[in-house]
C-alpha cells in the first residue's frame, strides 16, 4: 500500500482544458474592459477635445494618473480599498473596473488625436451642408478620425489584453494565474509558459490580422 502522497504530477491532457478555460477568462475580461474602456475613452477624448482648457485642467491630469501608475499597483490598491467605500467587488469585477479605466485613459488620447486629425475645414464643410453638430460627429469625424487612429487603438487593445495578466495578483484565475498553478504542480515552467504564451499569441494574432485587413481595405 502506497502511503506517501504525491504533490507533484506531470503535465496531463486535462491540464490543457484547464488552460483553455483560463484563456477564455482572459478573453472575457479583455473584451469587457476594452469595450467599456473604448466607449469611456472616446467620451473622455471628446471632452478633452471640446472642453479645451476646462477638461485639460481636470480630466487630463486624472487620466495621466491612471496612465502613469503601474497597473499592478492600481489593481492591488483598488481591490483593497474599494470595500472601505462599500464596494465589495470580486477579483473579476475589480479587474474589469481598473482595466477599463486604464484602457479609457489610453484611448482618450487616441480619440482626441483622431478628432484633431479631421480638421476644422472638413467639419465646416459638413456643417455647411446643414448637418447638425452630432451628425457631423457621427458621419464625418467618427469615420475619418477613427480610421486615422485605428492602428493606435489596436495597439492599445492588444496591450490591455496582455496586461490583463496582472489581474492574476487578485486571485482571478486567468491564463497567467492558471499557468502558475500548473507550474507549482508539475514543476515544468518552461513547457507551461510556452503553452500559455501560445495561447496569448492565438488570442492576439487574429485581431492584428483582422486589423491589417481592415486597414488595407480602407487605404484602397
Amino acid at each position: 500500500m502506497e502511503l506517501t502522497i504525491s504533490f507533484f504530477s506531470g503535465f496531463q491532457p486535462s491540464d490543457l482544458l484547464y488552460l483553455t478555460q483560463a484563456a477564455w477568462r482572459t478573453l472575457l475580461i479583455s473584451i469587457l474592459s476594452i469595450s467599456i474602456g473604448t466607449v469611456l475613452g472616446g467620451l473622455f477624448g471628446w471632452m478633452m477635445y471640446e472642453g479645451k482648457w476646462a477638461a485639460a485642467l481636470t480630466l487630463g491630469p486624472l487620466l495621466d494618473v491612471f496612465r502613469s501608475v503601474p497597473l499592478i499597483i492600481q489593481l492591488v490598491l483598488f481591490y483593497n480599498f474599494a470595500p472601505i467605500i462599500g464596494l465589495n467587488l470580486d477579483p473579476f469585477l475589480s479587474g474589469v473596473v481598473i482595466l477599463s479605466i486604464y484602457c479609457a485613459s489610453l484611448v482618450a488620447n487616441v480619440a482626441r488625436g483622431g478628432m484633431e486629425a479631421v480638421g476644422q475645414p472638413m467639419r465646416r464643410a459638413a456643417r455647411s451642408l446643414g448637418m447638425t453638430y452630432w451628425q457631423d460627429l457621427r458621419y464625418v469625424v467618427l469615420p475619418i478620425g477613427g480610421r486615422a487612429v485605428f492602428p493606435s487603438w489596436v495597439g492599445v487593445a492588444l496591450g490591455v489584453m496582455k496586461d490583463s495578466a496582472l489581474v492574476s495578483v487578485l486571485g482571478y484565475i486567468e491564463l497567467l494565474k492558471a499557468s502558475q498553478i500548473l507550474i507549482t504542480r508539475t514543476q515544468e515552467p518552461l513547457l507551461i509558459l510556452t503553452i500559455a504564451g501560445a495561447f496569448y499569441f492565438a488570442l492576439s494574432y487574429p485581431i492584428s490580422r483582422y486589423a491589417a485587413t481592415l486597414e488595407k481595405r480602407w487605404s484602397s
Binding site: 446643414g130 448637418m131 475619418i144
Partner: peptide
C-alpha cells in the same frame, strides 16, 4: 442647420469625405 440647407457653400479646400465614394459624398447630406 435648416437655414444652411438653402445656402450651398464651396470652399477653397474641397474637403471631400475621403471614406465615401463620389456618389456617397453627394448623397450623404
Amino acid at each position: 442647420n435648416k437655414l444652411r440647407q438653402k445656402m450651398g457653400m464651396v470652399f477653397q479646400q474641397w474637403n471631400s469625405f475621403p471614406h465615401l465614394t463620389a456618389l456617397e459624398n453627394v448623397a450623404l447630406a
